[in-house]
Design a protein around this nucleic acid. Sequence first.
DNA 1: TCCGGTATAATGTGATCACAAAATGAACTT
DNA 2: AAGTTCATTTTGTGATCACATTATACCGGA
Lengths: 242, 242
Amino acid sequence: MNFDPKTIIQRLQDADPQARGFVTVQERVYRELRTALVRGQLAPGRPVTLRGLAEMLNVSPMPVRDAVRRLIAERALMKLSNRRVAVPTMSPETFDEICRARLALEPEAATRALPGIDDRRLALLIELDKRCGGAMESGNVEHYMQTNQEFHFTLYTSVPQQVYMSMIESLWLQFGPFMRTVVGRWGTSRLIDQHQKAIEAIQSRNRRVLKEAIKTDILHGMRIIGEQVLNPHIAPDRNHHE
Amino acid sequence: MNFDPKTIIQRLQDADPQARGFVTVQERVYRELRTALVRGQLAPGRPVTLRGLAEMLNVSPMPVRDAVRRLIAERALMKLSNRRVAVPTMSPETFDEICRARLALEPEAATRALPGIDDRRLALLIELDKRCGGAMESGNVEHYMQTNQEFHFTLYTSVPQQVYMSMIESLWLQFGPFMRTVVGRWGTSRLIDQHQKAIEAIQSRNRRVLKEAIKTDILHGMRIIGEQVLNPHIAPDRNHHE
DNA sequence: TCCGGTATAATGTGATCACAAAATGAACTT
DNA sequence: AAGTTCATTTTGTGATCACATTATACCGGA
């Protein structure tokens, strides 16, 4: 055992990676870009430059390069004709694909996670649903989107399933930039809280009902985004750089 | 102007992008690593170093770094505890996840592709099936695996669907390294050619039958790999580096 | 005013270097 | 002889530079 002061501190930091912030710079950059994308802070079609992002985030271009490449691999950013990188634009076909992929993966992921949901996790889900419902009532779209994501991801990760989660995260990243188009055109009245149904299914350990609840929840949520994204007279102007 | 011999060679290669086959070095490295992984030329658990790969492929560590990061994002390589990179090992849980994910995505991808299959594509599929059948009869596992992949990917890409394809490619990359464990323990007798059934379904434009054919084809194919991978007394020793 | 060509600037890619962390192996202690 | 400590080597990460390619701005001629 090494009792170097430095080593001890290192050990403490390793014990709680969150406390240190992030392990590497590129990881920090990756997460910052990621959240910026999900929150719609980067407009679709907008060109992205390594040096520009580096300056914006006060880091050297190198970690940005790594983070951007990773996001490209996850389809959260797209490479244009030659070399240039941009925030992806959405087409009706792609949106349809994402919806179908979510429907194919997430209900399955939910039922797979069912055995891993203990009382503590269930309480957390109920809490998140309550917050999500509050956001719906108050019409706070951004808050709704965030708590909705937390609800889904908390549910799916009740059991470790890395293969599913990496694909699902990629899908959420892909439609993330378009959630902000929903702001201001928000009909809460049409939204029926499917989370409640999901929670009841969890409590009664009913896989079939859980699957159905997640399925309809996805359909409802995506319809809100899809209506905005896919109507040409509403959608924001797309800068087709290719 | 730099007259390093290495730089000059690089310049000559850059002069004719077509001859080199790929636009960038990292793309070439990426594909080489990718095929090496799929063909099981890199043993699971084996540690992978940037400088080592760079020397092996006669390139600088830089493009290797990019390619490796991309493969990590696609779950074709894994990052160990601290920094180090390795070929992933397979656990029964992960294998189960991959199977289920394939079953969730690929039958759907097939039926989505159905309207895009014209006569030319159908002829190609029939040709690939014939080759695949030949490989089965002759017991050539590697050839079977390759033509089987070509058949599936040709089918799915009959219609452009990038979202699905990137996820499916990632899945194939993940179980690719374990296909070679099948060699030598190959019971062709149990394999019934589901491709034939799929082709008939395509000809009659029957989505339900096509879905079912792909589903059973996946189940059969994965069972062959799974039996080898998941039986501890048969599976190769795993170097759990973490 | 509009178009086409040229010069300038900006960008991604690849190479090389510096450095801290980790792995490896040798020497040493018990 | 087995475990521990220390020195050396190796590795990933980040920074900086060179360069070819692409984009942008400018300008002259119709």
